[in-house]
Design a protein around this nucleic acid. Structure first.
Lengths: 326, 326
DNA sequence: CTAGGTGCAAATAATTTGCAGAGGC
DNA sequence: GCCTCTGCAAATTATTTGCACCTAG
């Protein structure tokens, strides 16, 4: 997503010599956006340096795949295509059968289902391929939508990241408002109220950021989604809110909150880390960080509550466990 | 899934002559279980008739793919593999990178997410490829699990179909019990009660069938899942139950029920039709049929309720619409 | 008898490899 | 100077095609 290319000199086969030609192949490859076939890359390389042989391109490509710099994808054309793994985390494809162009998407929902399936089969999952083949909008309507440039791709990614963060924030806010109403312990209630307040404030910040992003590109809101993170992010707090309903006590409410924040934190951290330095990555990681802070606060409060309850019990009469220990 | 092979004589290129050799290739192919490469098929064909050339096998394979008899799958080995489309509906793969064997699964949850994504991108989706590559249980543990024979595959499929049907039945039962408690109109309540009763009865039948199936193969319950239909089937009624909570009137309750039954009916019909004649298919289609009956009952009741309400209103004072029409 | 089907061998296409020479360290 | 990288051409692998012959309708 970001424009800054990785340091070429640090990328070379382990225990190997530096090679100008390999660097050139790599450099040409990394500057490309789409999914190149080995031949496409050959041609492009020849424009800059006709003295580079096919075999070198093939060999470099092989090394790049092994080193995780490139990914080999097969769209069933009888030849492989390659895409940069830098600035493109693991993602899935929509492949047009007519124009052979392909666009990308990312769905954490699908990813988690795949994980579930693999573990149900005791299968140690590595990479997954998800491809939808069909006919793209352009081929059906005849209108040629220009491909998104780097900055726009960045913005779409940031937009989606913000949307997900906002949705999570909203459901978090609902969760804490509910929790604060249900909590009887004044200190616990205060914690939930404070968290709800924080979520509200942060929600405002995110929404402001979203509005600013829209100001940069008026078509931004109508551009197709890149990140499909429907359930995974929002479901966490929604599930928590649901559990809150059924006569839970303060301690349970805190535990549910802890579970939600932990899930949410892990989710945003995990996905944030998958992206190269970019606005979207920043949004995810900042969010993960905020969730971590909340998580710590909740854990502290949970411990304090248990302590206070223990003291209270022992003040009146010894607890069941204490009595059993005697 | 079923053992009965399709009629070979009815399968031939449109406007083409009959050919013994093509029939033989086809017949050998359809008798196989796994994913054959063109060469594998050649070798197998040569065992029965060494006088059949490579080209014929390739040409037959091409025709089979075009005619929808076979599906071409690419596991990234540099050569294509082919699987019979008969007795195997569209499905996804887990591919072991070590032993190169692949096992199959079906997930309606993933399918519906894929549909959603395609439509969000205005992409007319055709086929989808979902592959998880990794290391299978056998390769990790060293224990060689024998591949499932036809009868067992059948049973696993029937087991999964029953599990899904039972889960749906359960959530349907919960939905109708709830609805019957919430409904004020005595006739409407009676309908919901009757449906709840029917669900309960049918649930019993399904559970009995499940127990019978387990009796045939004591390991059946522990065999890996083939159908991953987590959300799609159960979510329908669960969503309906949730909506029921918030002070809905009788008419709305009926409408929610109609929506649930319609979704459920369509779901089971759609997936049932994807399978060749088999116990699993029967379970799905029978279930779809039951849901259709419920759907019709609910629609009749909804109409009757509206009519009664209209009469009631016009008996007391003309309805808003009737007054406006004057 | 004739259009389509078939085997064989040759063509194509993508990718890999052997090898002699070039170039980094 | 050693060892790896590189270009070229030849090899390999998967699949398709041309063509003379065969066979079903």
């Amino acid at each position: 997503m970001a424009r800054n290319l990785p340091d070429l000199s640090s990328l070379r086969p382990a225990g190997s010599k530096h090679s100008t030609k390999r660097d050139r192949v790599l450099s040409v490859f990394l500057r490309q956006e789409g999914h190149l076939s080995a031949d496409d890359l050959c041609d492009l390389v020849h424009l800059e340096d006709p003295g580079i042989g096919r075999a070198t391109v093939y060999r470099t490509l092989q090394w790049m795949v092994g080193a995780g710099i490139a990914r080999k994808v097969n769209f069933g054309e009888g030849r492989a295509r390659f895409e940069p793994a830098y600035r493109h985390p693991r993602h899935f494809h929509l492949v047009c059968a007519e124009c052979r162009r392909s666009s990308e998407f990312l769905s954490s929902d699908i990813e988690s289902l795949l994980e579930e399936i693999a573990s149900a089969r005791n299968f140690q999952a590595g990479q997954a391929v998800v491809q939808i083949s069909g006919v793209c909008e352009d081929c059906r309507t005849g209108v040629k939508t220009p491909p998104l440039d780097g900055t726009t791709t960045e913005r779409v990614f940031a937009r989606d990241a913000l949307r997900i963060a906002i949705a999570t924030e909203r459901s978090g806010l609902e969760f804490y408002s509910r929790a604060s109403k249900l909590t009887t312990d004044p200190r616990g209630r205060e914690v939930f109220e404070r968290l709800a307040e924080e979520e509200k404030e942060h929600l405002g910040t995110l929404e402001k950021r979203y509005a600013e992003l829209l100001a940069d590109d008026e078509q931004l809101e109508s551009r197709p989604t890149f990140l499909f993170f429907k359930g995974a992010a929002n479901g966490i707090f929604a599930e928590g809110s649901e559990k809150l309903g059924k006569g839970v006590d303060d301690q349970q409410a805190l535990l549910i909150g802890i579970k939600c924040e932990r899930g949410s934190h892990q989710f945003f951290k995990r996905y944030g880390e998958r992206f190269e330095d970019s606005e979207g990555r920043r949004i995810f990681l900042e969010f993960a960080d905020e969730e971590r802070t909340h998580l710590e606060l909740l854990i502290r409060e949970y411990r304090s509550l248990r302590e206070r309850q223990a003291t209270e019990r022992s003040g009146r009469r010894p607890s069941a466990r204490a009595r059993a220990a005697r």
